[in-house]
Structure formats: structure tokens, C-alpha cells
Design a protein around this nucleic acid. Sequence first.
DNA 1: TTTAATATTTTGGCTAACCTAATTTTGGGG
DNA 2: CCCCAAAATTAGGTTAGCCAAAATATTAAA
Lengths: 193, 193
Amino acid sequence: MSAALAHEALTRSVEDYLKAIYHLSHKGQPATTSDIAQWLELTPPSVSGMVKRLSEQGLLEHVPYKGVELTPTGRRLALRMLRRHRIIETYLVGFLGYTWDNVHPEAERLEHAVSDTLIDRMAAALGNPRVDPHGDPIPSSDGSIDELIYTALPECGVGREVSIARVETSDPERLRYLGSLGLTPGTRATIAS
Amino acid sequence: MSAALAHEALTRSVEDYLKAIYHLSHKGQPATTSDIAQWLELTPPSVSGMVKRLSEQGLLEHVPYKGVELTPTGRRLALRMLRRHRIIETYLVGFLGYTWDNVHPEAERLEHAVSDTLIDRMAAALGNPRVDPHGDPIPSSDGSIDELIYTALPECGVGREVSIARVETSDPERLRYLGSLGLTPGTRATIAS
DNA sequence: TTTAATATTTTGGCTAACCTAATTTTGGGG
DNA sequence: CCCCAAAATTAGGTTAGCCAAAATATTAAA
């Protein structure tokens, strides 16, 4: 089943569901129907239906009324989408004048259209980066990902010198604000208060 | 109607129909249902149905049993797709290691996902080229296109020195063969026999 | 423990886009 | 001028993916 699937193209919707479930079930708990619905801006019945189809296809493990998790195949495909998204964002910022606050929507559409070959060539042009412009880790083509846990800023002591590693908001306005303060990944800073 | 349409996203199918009809009705005659069906590898009834919907939307002029032509709005949208396709091909060949014989399928998928902004930035990175790697003219963002008519090679006299302007095949194997002979746009050659 | 609120799923219906089979129109040869 | 083959359209059916409304399951509170 999973071998057969590897060669069938996934639809755009399916790719979005896999990404959403990856994000939501990331920290242990299974993703619930309403979590997924909210994330994807769909209604719960739509999610219920799709979840059923995807578990029949072996991409999800679904315990009715409890939630879903990705199977190994589903996880592999989700990570492939994550790699695509992050390589595309990094490429657009590096070579085509995008900024970290406006690159997301473009990547969101392109990630469904690119080939693995194109992604690998973009990655090569970038020197195979490990993180994207937000500091999020980029899965490698074999499906491994460095899930480093960084210390949140509020938990760093006053006076401490820190290096910004990752900025976990996707709100463009907030990103522009942080950017204007110079709070971008790679920057060194000292906590003033 | 056409103003309203400008802001609704077209589906991938609609974009493909517009491109097909542009290609087929290019030389005067309207495109017939079976021409379109053959070009898109669909059945004639499918095309009949879509043609009806697109003319109701003001993108086509359809005379039943006769054929279709693009309206000005339809033509503008078709040229936008053509510009996308050709800028993408040129960019992928120029910056990402694609060759003229393998770039088509990638562009065919990307053209439905890119924004106008991205296309304009790719074009700028390329120095706003007038032709793609096959020598096909690239419509400008305002919708104008240089439809130069070149002389076909067999009609050039023996001994004549010519400059290859455009290669009008999309067959990868043929393109590789021509490429191996050095018969690419921009090359100068002398007709031997 | 029983009830009420909440979450999930099921049911029924919609649209886009495709298909096959049946029907209608068109246009050329007898 | 009529008929027939080719082309086009209409009729009827499918799938993916969405929604709203109804039904059911779970969980928390009284």
C-alpha cells in the first residue's frame, strides 16, 4: 500500500492535511478533528471525511473520537512537504528578493507544484542549508530532521548574551516588527530587561 | 464580468484550456472541440462542457458546431500563462541547471502556482529576456508579444548563412538531438546541403 | 448518576471536472 | 437533393472535496 502510494501523486488537499497533522501532533498528543479543522480553516465534518479516506490509504492512524497520528508513510510525506516549503522559502529569500514576512504565501502554493529534483537543485544552490529564514530546521531529502529545542527568550536571564536561533511566529506584521529590531536568526543580543 | 474575473483565481484546468485555445486558434481559424480535446488529452464531451462554462464566463467566443476563439479577457489571461511558462523555463535553464529538453514538465506545473510578483522577479533576475530557451517570444507583463515570423530552415538556400532563431518542437528526444548538433537559438550556421 | 455541553461523525447535497453512451448537427459525395 | 460519416453536443454517471444539518459519542458538572 505505502509502496503503491509513493508513486501516485497526492492532491493538494491531502498534502495540506498531512502537513497540518504533522504540525499538530508534533508534541506527543494526537491531532483532533477540530484542531485540524481550525488549522486548515475547514469545517469538522470535512475533516472527519478526509481523515477516514487518509487512514484507509494508510497515511494516518485514526482512533474515532480520539484523534489521528501520522503513520510512518504519512510522516515521510509530511516531512517531504516541510522540506519543500522551507527550501522554497530560503531560496526565495536568498535569490529572489523575498523577505521573511512575505515569503510564506508564495511557498505555500509552490510547495505543491515543485519536483524533488527542483527542490534538490534549489537546496544545492543554497549550499544545503539546515534552517530556513525563520530558523526552522529543514528536513533532509532522506527524511531526517534536527528538532533542536531552543530556550525561549523570556526564560533567558537578564544580562545574558544570547544568539537568536528561531522565530516561531508566522504573522507578517510581527515578523516585520521583529525584523525592524534586528531580531532575526543568527543575530547575537544581550538581554537588557 | 471581466473585471470581476480578474480577481477570482482560475483553476488549473481553466488555465490549461486558455493556453490550449491560444495555441490552436493562433493562426486565424477558431479552435475546434476535437483540436482542443486532442491537445489536452481529454474527450470531446469534456471539452464541450468546459467550453460552454468558459463562454458563459466571458473568456471565450463560442459558435456551436463551429469552434471557439478567445475574448480579449481570455487572450490576456492566456498570454499571462504563456509569459509565466516561458519565464519559468528561462529561469530554470539559466539558474537551476535545467536543459531545454527537460524543462517543460516542471514549468507546466509551476506556471499554475506562481504569483505575478515572482514571475516579474525571475524576469528581472534574467534581465527581462525577450525569448525563452527555445527562441519562443515571452509576452511582457502588459500583455504584448513579439510574434516574429522566421524562415523555416528547409526554405533557406544552400550555402546561405543563417542564425537559428527558434526551435519549434517540444519532443525531448528531438531537442536533445538538435542540441547535440549545436542547433540552438542564437547559433549561426551555414546550410551545407 | 444523571444531565448538559462539547466534540465527532453521519447524512445528504453541492460544484468542478472528468468519462461513456446516445443524440443531434453539419457538410460532402452520389 | 438526399444520405451518411464525422464532429459536436446532450444525457447520465463518477470522484474529490467541500458544506450544513442531524445524530451520536464523550466528558464534565451538578
